[in-house]
Amino acid sequence: MKGLNRSLKELVDSRLFVLIGLGNPDRGDDVMGVWVAKKLKNLAPKRVFEEDEGIEGIILDILKRGDVGMILFLDTVDFGGHPGELRLFSRENLSPSIISTHKIPLRPLMELLGKKGKESYLLGVQPRTLDFGSEMSDVVEEISKDLISHLSQVIIGKRKKEGDGT
């Protein structure tokens, strides 16, 4: 995680970022994004969101905000890696033709944000299990805790620096 830690750190350190946790809590490791967001929410309620809050409202709000430079989506992504492996994707890495009748596809959202001067990235964690009704696997939970620790330090650091009480 060290290499990624560095690029992730550069991203979140250099920008006023917002984190959006995505996923389905009933599908094993797919809970990861919302689990991490839930743990960080109290630290920065205006900068951390969960999918259940309504993704369209979150994005429309971000478009109006001048204090957001970067959006980090957090989700489990099957990219063929080892369970628990992290990978950072820019919008160009995502297929525009991903089909989901139930979810807003990420690529158009990231493109829209980009057109409005807001950079966005998807931080993906390779899942071990997505079985309905299963628990988050140990390996994904471990990486999630690392993420929470890392991101909470960044958020607390920014709060101290900016004094904005995010």
Binding site: D78, S90, N93, S100
Partner: peptide, 15 residues
């Protein structure tokens, strides 16, 4: 960064 195409996102409501 190497460009790859993600074949499926793990936000599963149906297969």
């Amino acid at each position: 960064m190497k460009t790859i195409t993600i074949d499926s996102l793990a936000r599963v409501e149906g297969h």
